[in-house]
């Protein structure tokens, strides 16, 4: 995957229950520069809706949200 964006921060959110994955992403977004990418891996199925909803309502961007086995992998881009 040569077109994969550079990841600025990796977040391991495995085992965390809702809403903690969303909370952690929200807290960490300030740690990457504008335009930077967070790669977050969660195991809670609720995150599949929660993280995109959080991104939409705060004005950030979910570049991709994929289910890989029992894990959910998100690429979140800081927009502002």
């Amino acid at each position: 995957m040569s077109d994969a964006p550079n990841v600025d921060l990796e977040l391991d959110l495995k085992g965390l229950l809702c809403p903690m994955p969303m909370v952690k992403v929200s807290q960490s977004i300030k740690d990457v520069p504008v335009g930077g990418i967070i790669r977050a891996v969660a195991t809670d199925a609720g995150a599949m809706a929660d993280i995109p909803a959080w991104a939409k309502s705060t004005g950030h961007e979910v570049v991709s949200a994929l289910k890989e086995g029992s894990e959910f992998v998100f690429l979140v881009k800081r927009v502002k």
Binding site: P19, M22, V23, S26, A49, D50, A53, W54, K56, S57, T58
Partner: peptide, 9 residues
Amino acid sequence: QLADAAIFK
């Protein structure tokens, strides 16, 4: 933010 995300959903 958590409230807004829930409403957005």
